[in-house]
Design a protein around this nucleic acid. Structure first.
Lengths: 243, 243
DNA sequence: ATTGCGTGTTACTACAAGTAACAGCTACCT
DNA sequence: AGGTAGCTGTTACTTGTAGTAACACGCAAT
């Protein structure tokens, strides 16, 4: 019988603290993070087709050790996707919080995104293409990542439209659509590289602004994309928060 | 030794016609089409996770018979994707060729697309999620399908912008982006179904038009989306034709 | 009668994900 | 001092699915 249980028991027999458990608390999380990073290095080396044998070898352990921290390959895949999502959000957050015009804000977000997929192309392919159909969409890192960004954009657009007393019924569809637009263009660019990142950033910024501008104009609002715009200060990116 | 070679030999020993070959010419194609349709039924029954055993059973044959017509599972997956692409193009073509206003044209295309993924949800998931990473993007049915549509849109937009003497440098990125937008919104809608198809169609039609309108406006052109628009009559959807 | 194209089948291989079953270390508890 | 909970390590092994070997057969054309 394996003397490691998965998941770690949430309760203790006598409800008493046992320092033996505390001893390993942070260690287990650090170990898991170490394996995720090993997976990312292996993906970089072997490509999106990487197997659990290669990931274990990169981590310097045998497969059973990996399987003590991840229930299966899709669990590891999920953790890798979360790593990528966190990286992306860490990079995008400053781009959002920094001031400037609408165009500058959109440009920074798009450029940051393209920079991340350019820096980690195999990781991107691993995450985007290796969708495990047995997982509900909610736990799919691609969908999770897109949903996080789409929901944040929904909230931004929704609050803005409502503050202008415009119809906000389409913000969820539009947000997913805009995220899909950037991702699809990025996907094409990653494979084709027929233009520079700066050129693509500019073209995408334009069409994103045109789409948003059209929504505002349909409500009679005209905004100059090159004037600084104050956004609601409490607005921040949150995960899976409904609009 | 198997007496079936893959692929069928293109030449004959004496360069003489042998009617025994002609006997099977159409049959082989019909058989293959039959297996593709069996695969589609099996996907409908078992979901996107369907295995080759189940597909063979649905076709009423054993696996070796399937493998005489498809080199591997990804080859069958490719054929299924082509089936889906052809279905989509067959449905979209009338929507494109029919006259009307810009808004009406866009609306028909979007509605047709959403209708197809609603009618074949498991097929959609099979094609969209089961990307075989060992296949180059060019033979990936998802990318192929999106590329066909994006390239057609590129050509439409490019010719239009050039006829108006506007910068058409971004049409490829925009086209892939617009296709990605519709697909991402459709993906979200298929999982969430939080609004009707007609509502989603209307919202998507709006933002697509806003995006295109913005491109035109940036060149000083203003077009009424509710006026009938004559498109170049020789323009038609073609596969992988460069802009 | 032979041959080229198809059909059929079961048993089998290959590979990668995932696990059984063991040994051992160390800090904490009794 | 001895027992225990948490971790570490390993190799051999199972499982499931894709894919194939190797055979027999039918039928129209040669």
């Amino acid at each position: 019988m394996s003397h490691i249980s998965r998941p770690v028991k949430a309760t203790q027999p006598q409800g008493r603290n046992d320092a033996r458990r505390e001893r390993w608390k942070g260690h287990r999380q650090a170990r898991r993070a170490e394996f995720v990073e090993a997976a990312i290095r292996a993906i970089g080396d072997y490509g999106a087709e990487v197997g659990m044998d290669d990931i274990a070898a990169e981590a310097g352990v045998s497969k059973p050790v990996l399987y003590r921290h991840f229930s299966d390959k899709s669990d590891l895949y999920l953790a890798v996707g979360e790593w990528g999502t966190n990286l992306l959000m860490e990079r995008i957050r400053p781009a959002l919080e920094q001031g400037g015009t609408v165009r500058e804000r959109i440009e920074r977000i798009v450029s940051t995104y393209l920079g991340v997929i350019e820096e980690y192309p195999e990781l991107y392919r691993f995450v985007v293409r290796r969708n495990f159909a047995d997982r509900p969409v909610q736990t799919d890192p691609v969908s999770t990542e897109k949903t996080i960004i789409a929901n944040s954009l929904s909230r931004l657009l929704g609050e803005y439209l409502r503050s202008l007393e415009l119809d906000s019924g389409g913000v969820e569809a539009w947000s997913h659509g805009l995220v899909g637009m950037v991702q699809a263009s990025g996907d094409w660019w990653l494979e084709r590289h027929s233009m520079s990142r700066d050129d693509l950033t500019e073209y995408l910024t334009k069409i994103i602004w045109f789409a948003i501008d059209g929504v505002l104009r349909s409500g009679g609002i005209v905004i100059d994309p090159d004037q600084p715009l104050e956004l609601p200060p409490d607005l921040k990116l949150v995960e899976n928060e409904d609009v």
